[in-house]
């Protein structure tokens, strides 16, 4: 069972910012993947994921973001996370991915 993911897309000079709202888990990850791939179609230099309203992310969500970064690196672009809540930051920390995704 997949679920839609609440989000808003904002253009930036160097690409785009997507602000998410809600938990990112295995039910949402397939939709998140479609959304990220679409946002990466114009090959932006930077895709910022605003996580301020995401209270929880699981490893399927993290893997989906890692795949997006992998795609973006194909044209020297990047995917960066901003505004992570502590619980989300801890999840990335355990996965050993805070630096890769530019999580301060």
């Amino acid at each position: 069972m997949t679920r839609a993911i609440q989000h808003e897309l904002f253009p930036r000079d160097d690409g785009a910012r997507i602000a998410f709202d809600g938990e990112i888990d295995m039910h949402v990850a397939p939709e998140l993947r479609k959304l990220l791939r679409k946002a990466l179609e114009p090959r932006p230099r930077t895709l910022v994921l605003d996580m301020a309203k995401v209270p929880f992310i699981d490893s399927s969500g993290i893997a989906t973001i890692v795949e997006a970064l992998k795609l973006a690196r194909g044209w020297s672009g990047t995917v960066r996370l901003e505004g992570c809540q502590d619980a989300v930051r801890d999840t990335f920390d355990i996965a050993g991915l805070t630096r890769l995704l530019g999580i301060a």
């Binding site: 997949t2 397939p30 399927s60 893997a63 989906t64 890692v66 795949e67």
Partner: peptide, 18 residues
């Protein structure tokens, strides 16, 4: 799960890294 195989491959690496 209904996750794509590409996502599963990344998750496997993450779990094994742990």
């Amino acid at each position: 799960t209904s996750l794509d195989e590409a996502i599963i491959r990344i998750m496997v690496k993450m779990k094994l890294e742990l």
